[in-house]
């Protein structure tokens, strides 16, 4: 179900950002796009509201794997009362972070696919947010001989790539150690 009131949602997000730039003293500019214009041209994000930020303090947003972007996405989604499974409809971005991350995940998918083919064994990724897992699943769409699923709970949930037809019941997945500098 699409977000019902784009104008109201955009106003709430604008007021959150205004709080950060005035009371919080963060030097940020932002542009909020809602509706069809917000769609991800690559189809990797399911966004209906897209918030692009720039300015001297935009670097803070993308530190630690985009921790602050994710925090803002979560708080904004709660403010406009989205259900948990609808949180992907809001996306915050800065310095092209989302597109770069999508590219990284595509490369990671390619590398994992090669490894799975070479070894015939499943490949486990590091734990990721639900949005990133979604992007990763989509990145595997092009590989017909690889199947993906997610394992683990909560913050520890991660994607596993399996060779086609692999009996997933006989495998106990364990996530990769998290990459350096990425914290959740």
């Amino acid at each position: 179900m699409p977000i019902e009131d784009y104008r109201g949602a955009a106003e709430k997000i604008a007021s959150l950002l205004k709080t950060l730039t005035t009371l919080g003293g963060l030097r940020l500019k932002y542009r909020i796009t809602a509706g069809a214009g917000a769609a991800d041209p690559d189809g990797l994000e399911a966004r209906e509201i897209y918030v692009e930020m720039a300015g001297p303090d935009a670097g803070l947003l993308t530190q630690r794997g985009g921790e602050l972007l994710r925090a803002l996405e979560h708080v904004a989604a709660k403010m406009i009362r989205l259900e948990n499974e609808e949180h992907d409809k809001i996306s915050f971005d800065a310095n092209n972070f989302k597109a770069l991350r999508a590219q990284e995940l595509k490369l990671a998918a390619q590398t994992a696919a090669d490894k799975v083919r070479e070894t015939g064994q499943p490949y486990c990724f590091a734990p990721m947010s639900s949005r990133e897992r979604r992007m990763l699943h989509l990145a595997f769409r092009g590989f017909e001989d690889i199947e993906t699923s997610s394992s683990g709970e909560g913050l520890q949930r991660f994607v596993v790539a399996y060779p086609e037809g692999y009996d997933q019941r006989k495998f106990r997945p364990a996530p990769q150690a998290m990459a350096r500098g990425r914290r959740r």
Binding site: L20, G24, L68, R70, A71, L72, H74, V75
Partner: peptide
């Protein structure tokens, strides 16, 4: 946790 992350960024700034 999200509110604390936001507060953390503002703390750094201040």
């Amino acid at each position: 946790r999200s509110m604390r992350t936001i507060l953390g960024a503002v703390s750094m700034k201040h």
